[in-house]
């Protein structure tokens, strides 16, 4: 659960979002987002019974392409922005479970 009695459980959410926050940021964001959430509470006054959710402004269906392949990037292009690469692969620090 992402909420404690003071609003957002900022540690839980920052962990999900994979952003490390300083204590100062945690405090400031908690306060600011608390205000925003309080404002958003207003939505609870709206009766939405029987209302379908809108996922797309203009609903379309079956938007697809045929299964034909086109040549993509060369390895050089694929890796041109990589912070580190070796053996034509992107290097990442050790992955620990």
């Amino acid at each position: 659960m992402a909420k404690d009695e003071n609003g957002i459980d900022i540690d839980y959410v920052a962990n999900l979002a994979r952003i490390s926050l300083t204590d100062e940021e945690k405090e400031r964001f908690s306060g600011q987002l608390g205000d925003v959430l309080e404002y958003i509470e207003k939505l609870n006054t709206v009766d939405v019974s029987g209302v379908e959710p809108t996922a797309h402004a203009f609903p379309l269906e079956n938007v697809w392409r045929e299964d034909t392949a086109e040549p993509g990037f060369s390895v050089e292009t694929a890796l041109q922005n990589a912070p580190a690469s070796r053996r034509n692969m992107v290097v990442v620090p050790k992955v620990v479970e």
Partner: peptide, 10 residues
């Protein structure tokens, strides 16, 4: 996976 790092192939 390698000893010190990992390499990603997409």
């Amino acid at each position: 996976h390698y000893d010190d790092d990992s390499l990603v192939d997409y």
